[in-house]
Design a protein around this nucleic acid. Sequence first.
DNA 1: ATTGTGGCCTGCCCGC
DNA 2: TGCGGGCAGGCCACAA
Length: 260
Amino acid sequence: MPEGIEIEYYRRLAERVLDRRVVAVDAPDPWFLKGGLIGGALADAVVGRRFVAARRVGKLLLLDTDADGPTVGLRFGMTGRLIVDGVAGVDDLQYSSQRDEPAWDRVAFTFDAGDLRIRDPRRLGGVVLDPDESSLGFDLLTISAAQLRRALAGSTAPVKARLMDQARVAGVGNLIADEVLWRAGIDPAREAGSLSDPEIRRLHKHLRAGVGAMIERGGSHTGDLFAERRPGGRCPRDGAPLVRRTVGGRTTWSCPRHQR
DNA sequence: ATTGTGGCCTGCCCGC
DNA sequence: TGCGGGCAGGCCACAA
């Protein structure tokens, strides 16, 4: 599913359309338009303009328009793919369909050459105009150790829940959270505020290194833990049978031996 | 404010 | 072979 890593791939892909002129917007699914937006208003806002920057904060992809026009915010839920000029931003999207159905196109921007579209079977993504970026926390690719400390401090919530709280740390989804906590040897259910300074620094180190490795390997499903997230799965580090729980409302796999 | 829960959406997979 | 139920999780509304 798209987490911050996949959205970063989408952002890079979206850079292809910069400086092209939007000639049409097709939004066949009103459900997909968020924040009171309607198809006609979206088209009015961007047709004739050009996208001049493709930015990303967490799992939110932002396309800025020229001449102080609006910013288009794109969300992908867990099954949304970005497709630019017929090229998909990722080819292996976990938990989504491997099929390719044009009927799943929920929004499409057509340019003077080529197009950009979101293909989302489950319709959990969406499009919003001028999204509120200030409600998002520190981005997972640039967060500092001090910022991570601030995101976790004083909380009784599970550390995994805080990591996935987009208002605290933006871009961490379920797979990334499990992977980095496993790498750092920290129990996902630990109270966030109970982590010591050395543990926070260790978590930060593994967050940066783990995300970096997964970006290079090709996605949030390429972590060392991923293949063992299944019944009968064993810890790749010490061989202990993994434990499946619900933490922070999400299916969580962890090693009872080395994650403390 | 913080934390937890349930619902939304729908393709897919398993068991009967 | 068909069918029904459960599952996946990002996000949001809502409750305590």
